Computed example of a mutant assay.
Amino acid sequence: MNSQIHYQIAISLIKGIGPKLARNLIAYLGSIEAILDSKSRFEKIPGIGTVMAQKLRETDFVSILKQAEKEMTFVEKEGLKTLFFTDEDYPRRLSFCEDAPLMLYYRGNASLDATRMISVVGTRRPSDNGMTNCEKLIQELAVRHPGTVIVSGLAYGIDICAHRAALRNNLPTIAVLAHGLDRIYPGTHHHTAREIAERGGLLTEFMTETNPDRPNFVKRNRIVAGLCDAVVVVESARKGGALITAGIANSYSRDVLAFPGRVNDEASGGCNKLIKTNIAALIEDVDDLEYALGWESKSGGSSVVQGSLFASAETPDEKAIMEVLLAEKEMNLNLLGLQLGMPIGRLSATLLDMEFKGLVKSRPGGVFKLL
């Protein structure tokens, strides 16, 4: 048994401990093991406070370690991959989200850090038009952007439509679950889930024996939003999980796109509201998605001019950004941050300085390119 993973699972079971507090605990105490062994120094740790310190002292760490050991046995038996928030292979887009899970469990082989990842969500009771829009968009993505990963939640309606369309068009697809990997919900999607695991992946933050209870779906939605470059809402009423996912994506500074519907069409009321309130950009086809995300055909200028621009970079961050943009021609802000390993706040400030200096130009969809 891998003792490190055992302790990682254990710390993820401590109530009230998220990534920020976990980092403080690990930094102050020196290791994950020390968190589970310590009983006295919690109140001295930044961000913990007396109330949380008392809760930690009262936590039954022996019981938590036994529970983690049981989970570890399942992980090893099933050949699952565990992704702790400090691991190098933890999804980097998700790592920028303050409420990202400490631990993820993964069955599959699709990359969680693919160059292009799109979440497709919507109502559980789609119209024929909604299903057609979903299938057509994914078919067009497969033709024009092979390798794009389609993320959704395996639910009835638009979710399962998106997964199946991705499979039919040979795109990798990842289903984010609201329960443990020892079960599939809904059961009618079991066959599709098995195919997704073979050609994409099943991802969850929940341990075995976790039922798909209502609160878990909201937690699941933040992973659907955080994994991607953009969330596409195909069809949604004014209330529902798709709108929650869109709201979370917007709070993460992800692009949100929505298909419009008729004014009096209840199934499209949510999409129309997202567009009307400027949370979502209107989308009708893959052309609109490409424009919003800056996925148009790449074009570059003279190597002499680019070399001159590179010489104008003044700081190490500017030079690193220039090197990537010289190679890639243009890149979305989130992807640029992923490739550079640079926090989004610092990257945004540096890019703004570079715009003032005439080194880069911003385009729709948070895309940057060299001038």
Rank of each mutant, 00 (worst) to 15 (best):
M117K: 05
R363G: 11
K357Y: 02
T86E: 10
G147R: 02
L202I: 03
A166Q: 08
S38W: 04
E314H: 11
L282H: 10
K273S: 03
E71P: 04
K357D: 14
K273R: 13
N272P: 11
A320Y: 02
L141I: 02
L102P: 01
P19Y: 04
A165E: 15
V231L: 13
L203Y: 10
P316C: 06
V360T: 09
G47E: 01
G301F: 07
K66G: 01
K20D: 11
G366V: 08
A27N: 15
L21T: 12
L309E: 00
A292R: 08
L293S: 03
L326I: 13
K361Q: 15
T188I: 15
H163A: 01
F84S: 00
K369I: 14
C228Q: 15
Y185W: 03
I150G: 00
K39N: 14
T50H: 14
R125V: 12
L352N: 08
M207H: 15
M52N: 14
F310T: 09
E76R: 03
L25P: 10
T86Y: 10
R254Y: 04
I321T: 05
D353K: 14
N264M: 15
I184F: 13
G47P: 07
S12R: 08
R164V: 06
S308I: 10
S63V: 03
K15H: 11
E140F: 06
R125T: 09
D213M: 14
G300H: 12
G18F: 00
T245K: 15
I184Q: 08
L171I: 02
A313S: 05
G269N: 08
D265S: 10
K20T: 11
L29T: 03
D89N: 06
F84E: 01
D113C: 05
L309N: 09
E140Q: 06
E58I: 00
I17N: 06
Q8H: 02
L25S: 05
T315Q: 04
V324P: 10
I244L: 02
V151K: 03
A27E: 14
L257H: 04
L94F: 08
L141D: 04
N169S: 07
H189E: 07
G366K: 13
A249Q: 02
A27I: 08
R168V: 14
G241Q: 11
N169I: 00
G180L: 09
N109V: 05
C161Y: 01
K239L: 11
N129L: 14
A142G: 00
F96K: 14
A175M: 04
G201L: 00
A197E: 01
I275S: 05
M131K: 15
E330M: 12
R125C: 11
V143P: 05
L167D: 13
I17E: 09
R238G: 03
L104K: 10
T123H: 07
R144I: 07
G108S: 06
F84V: 00
E58L: 08
K66F: 04
A313V: 14
Q139K: 13
L326Y: 14
V224M: 01
G157N: 10
T315A: 07
R92V: 12
V75K: 05
S362F: 13
S12Y: 11
L65M: 04
R346L: 12
H179K: 03
V224F: 00
I248P: 09
I248V: 11
V360G: 04
P260V: 14
L282P: 06
I48D: 08
T245F: 15
V324S: 13
L102S: 05
K44W: 03
